[in-house]
Amino acid sequence: MATNTDTATETAPSRRLRTRLERAFNGDLFVHVALAGAIALVALPLVLAVIMSTQSTTEVYEVTNLGLGSAGLSNYETALTEYNLTRYMINSAVMSVVIVVGKVSLSLLAALALVYYRFPFERAVFTFILLTLLVPVPVRIVPLFQLMADLGWANSLLSITGPYIASATAVFLFRQHFMSIPESLVENARLDGVGPLSFLVRVLIPMSRGMIAGVSVITFIYAWNQYLWPLIVVSDQSKQVVQVGIKFLQGASQSGLTQWGLIMAGAVIALLPPLAVLVALHRPLLETFAIQQK
C-alpha cells in the first residue's frame, strides 16, 4: 500500500514538486489553514448576512460599508414583533417537533419489521418505500391539497405534519444501522424470548442513539425549512410557519426600497433553531452516525 509505483515514470522535477506538496499536505498547519480557508468561503454569506442585519436600508446598499450598521438590533426587533416572526417561530417549532417525533417513531417501527422479521415480499416492501424519494413535491401539491380538504385537515397542524411523518430516507438509514448491530446481541435477545417492542426499546434504541440523533437533525431541518406546502395549505396567517413569514419580510419595503436589513435579520433568526439542534446533537452525530453495511 505504501509503495509508489505510479510515480516511477514521472520526471524528477515533477516528483520533487509532488513530494513537497505531499509533505505540506501532511502537516498539521496545512489542515488548519485549509480548513479555515474553506470554511471562511463557506461561511462568507452568513457573515455578510449578519453584518447587513444590523444595517439600515440605506447602509445595506452601500457596497463598501462592511461594518456593523447603525440599526443595531432594531431589525431583529421589528421582524420578531411587527412581522410576527415570534409566532411563526412557535408554529414552526411545534410543526417540526411533531414531524421529528412522528418520523423517527414510525421509521424505527418500519425498520424493525424490515430487519428482524421474516415475511413475504420484504424486498418489494422496501423498494416500495424507497421509491417515494422520487416524487417531487411541487406536483403532489394539487392532489394533496384536495385530499387535505376532503379529510377536513386544511388549515390545521395535521395538514403540515401528517404528510411528512413517514420517510424513505429515515427508514433506509435505520434499516442500514440495524443491520450493522452485531448478531450476537440479537441472538441473545431471541434466546431470552424478548418481545419485539421491548427489543426495540431495550436493545435497538440504545444502540442507535447516534443514528436517531442524525435522522432527527436532518428531519428537523427539512421540516423547519418547509415553505411551499404551508403557504398553500395554511390560510390563517396566525398559523403560518416561519419560512412563509420570511417571505412576508421580502415584500416589506420602506420608501420604495426592499428592506434587506430586515430580511437578513429574519434569515438569521430563522437559522437559529436548526443551528441549535445541530449544536445540541453534534456529538452523537459525529461519533456514531454512519452507514454501515454487513
Binding site: 410576527n84 409566532r87 412557535i90 411545534v94 390545521s156 397542524l157 390563517d236 396567517q237 396566525s238 398559523k239
Partner: peptide
C-alpha cells in the same frame, strides 16, 4: 391577527403546552 383565528390556533397547539406563549404574543 384576529381573536377567532387566535382561539383556533391556541386550540390546535394547546395540547403541546404552547397556549401560554401564544396568549402572550397575541396580547
Amino acid at each position: 391577527m384576529t381573536r377567532n383565528t387566535r382561539r383556533r390556533f391556541v386550540k390546535t397547539v394547546g395540547a403541546a403546552g404552547i397556549a401560554g406563549l401564544a396568549g402572550c404574543t397575541g396580547g
